[in-house]
Every structure is written in C-alpha cells, then in structure tokens.
Design a protein around this nucleic acid. Structure first.
Lengths: 199, 199
DNA sequence: GTTTTCATGGTGCAGATGCACGATAACAGA
DNA sequence: TCTGTTATCGTGCATCTGCACCATGAAAAC
C-alpha cells in the first residue's frame, strides 16, 4: 500500500531497529538482514532508504548523538531556569549517566560506536567533540559559580570541570559494565559536588 | 621445519598479531585470515593452535588482561617500596592510563572487547572485576594515608577512591578518543592528588 | 482513464568467512 | 633404518553479507 511516506521518519525507525541490534549483538551484528528483521521490513526496503550500509551506520550515529544531545539540552535547560549553578552542573553530569532503559540503550550504542572507531582510526568528529563540550560547559558553569561565590575561587575551574567530566565518562562505562549502579554513580557525583560547592 | 614448538608461546605470538588487527580494525576485523596474515603464518596454523575462532578471542582477552595486570602490578610494586602513599595511589592511576604505544594498544584492545561485551550481554567476569579492583586498591591506600595523617580523615576514602578510579577510566577513553593527551591526563591526576594529599 | 512515480518485495551473485579434510616434510624414538 | 608424531600448508565447502537487478501494485498526476 504505497502511501506517501516521510523518508526521514522511516530512516529514524530503521535506526531505532539498528540500535536494538547493536545493543543485543554489538556493531558487528549490524547486517542489512538483521536490521530489516528487527524493523519488521524486507531487506530491500532498508537498502531503499540507505543506499549503502555505511550510510545507515553513519545516519544511526548522527541520530544517537542527536537524541542524546536533545535529552541533555532539555535537562540542562530545566536546571538553567532554576538559576542554581550547582543544579546546572549536576544536570550536565546527570545527562551523561545512563539512568533508565532508554539512556542505557543510547549510551551502549555510543560506546559500541566509540570502540569501533577508536580502533578504525575513527573519523567521527562528533564523538571527539562530545567530551570536550562537556568539559567546556562545566567549566563555564563552575566559573559562574565562583563569581557567585558558591565555589572557592582558589580552585581551578578548568581542572575541576575536567575531573568531573572524565569521572562521568568513567561512570558511564562503570554502569554499562555492571561495576556501578546508577544510584551509586549519582551518589558519587553528589559527593563530589558537595566538595565543590561547600564554601 | 618442524622443530618442537612451545604451544603456549605460539599462542601468545598469535595473540599479539590479533591485538594489532584489533587496533587497526576493531574486533570485527578479527578473522582467521587477517590474524594469520598479520602473524605471517598460514590460516591453518592459526586453527591448529586455536580449534575455534572463539577460543582465539577468549585467549587473547585473557592475555591482554594478564599483560595489563602484570604491568600495573610492577608499577604499583615499585611505588610500594618507596613507602609513599601518594606515590602508590599515583601508580595505581598511572598504570591504567595509556602512556606509550604499548599501553595504548592494550587499552584499545580492552575497550574494543569491553564494547563488544557490553552489548553481547558480555560474560567477561574479568572486565567487570577490573574497575572494582582499582577502587578497592585505591581505597585501601587512601585509608592508609589517612592513618599516616597525609589525607584528611574527614574525607570518605571509598568515595575518593571511586572518584579517582572512574576519572581514570574516563581519561582512558578520553586519551584513546583524542580528547585528552597523556600529559593533560596526568596533569589532571596530579591536580586531584594535590587536593587529596594537601594537609 | 492513462501514465508516471513511488514504496515494497523477490532473487541472484560475487566475495568473504569459519571450518573440515587431506597432503607433506622434518624431526623423534625404536 | 624405519615408523610415527608433529608442525605446516593447500583446498574445498556451506554459509553469510552487501549489493544489484528486476517485478509489481498502488497512489498521484495529468
């Protein structure tokens, strides 16, 4: 029944199926047939929307970043309205940590892609830009907090931001690897925030 | 020229070739033919020493953990002789961070395996045990440092250990992803150690 | 009502991959 | 010296993968 179809939405649906395949079997499990079966469509249809497999993988990567960034922006935006610098910093970190099934999926997919690219000499400019972006956002907020006298001016804002951001990155792998529960991760974040925002 | 050969050493050589393949193209690039070519032997010989491909992957995983742990133990052991708690803590962290080509390779391989397993519902007990082990070792040393009055007793040793360990884990991905240089990572570690070991 | 476009399915094909079977030559032990 | 073990190689095979080509029916355009 060939009704007119929104190609972009179709691609997003296929990307969602791809995510599930990745979570279940890693990036190497992504085959045209597997994705098609997961999406409940024929393999040819996948090829219809993605001329080559690599196009599909690239689109899915951009999509997972887009989804993650949107979630993070919403979370940080809500905190920004409160005007509380500590809440903003916490929102930045909370946006990174996988807490529910959805964010867990997005994080797992990102790690799978990351690993596939760390090796392949990966040219994923977005991934490399993700951690630095987090560091910059945190540094900015910490500097603001220092000006508001909520963080000691003796601290190095850039260093503190780096420490928090890399800790969050490590917690992501810790959570996905089963070494940390989401609760323990947030406890650690709050512990560090308590040190930062004490004076 | 069939001289009598040490099978275990042969397996290790093949594993080294496998590492290079993984670093170059990810775990998915590991094929019998690719590993054989990298090792400069025929594919049949690889199969001779590893009955199935999965045996090879498993052996290589155990090997990379063994090599990493040995390196770390040596580094920490040297620091332990000095009796300086701060040096020991730093050694724990330095042992994790990829600083030269060799440790970079080992870290990349571990991340590749980690990602392949985070997804596959991975049953690699060693990997899950790696971060907790680091946390435990750090917590122990920090507690000792508190007893030696080199770290404020007001701090929570377990939390500090967790924060340092996860930061190190995040720095590993940061270094491999190109977001951090090894020097910047060590600067961050030393900054945090300066905070911990001030009083 | 006819024609054109478009979404979807079926099939085949060349290449790669893991693995099994068989061959061979060099060393070891009798 | 002879026989058996062992390290090594070559080849073939069933399977899977990405992709290309073609078919078809329904909607849209005219």
């Amino acid at each position: 029944m060939p009704k007119r179809v929104d190609h972009q939405q179709r691609r997003c649906e296929i990307a969602e199926a791809l995510f599930r395949v990745v979570v279940r079997g890693g990036v190497s499990a992504v085959t045209l047939r597997a994705v098609a079966a997961e999406a409940g469509i024929s393999m040819n249809l996948v090829q219809y929307y993605f001329p080559a497999k690599d196009d599909m993988l690239r689109f899915a990567w951009r999509r997972v970043v887009e989804l993650s960034v949107a979630r993070a922006a919403a979370e940080v935006g809500r905190a920004l309205e409160s005007g509380d610098e500590r809440a903003v910093v916490r929102a930045y970190l909370a946006a990174v940590l996988p807490s529910d099934e959805r964010t867990r999926l997005l994080a797992a997919v990102q790690i799978a892609y990351f690993a596939a690219d760390v090796t392949r000499g990966g040219p994923h400019p977005d991934e490399e830009a993700l951690l630095p972006h987090l560091v910059r956002g945190l540094a900015e907020q910490i500097t603001l907090a220092q000006q508001a006298n909520r963080v000691s001016p003796a601290l190095d804002a850039a260093m503190e931001a780096g420490a928090l951001a890399t800790m969050a990155a490590g917690l992501v792998t810790g959570i996905l690897g089963g070494a940390y529960t989401a609760e323990a991760a947030f406890a650690l974040v709050d512990y560090r925030l308590g040190q930062l925002f004490c004076p």
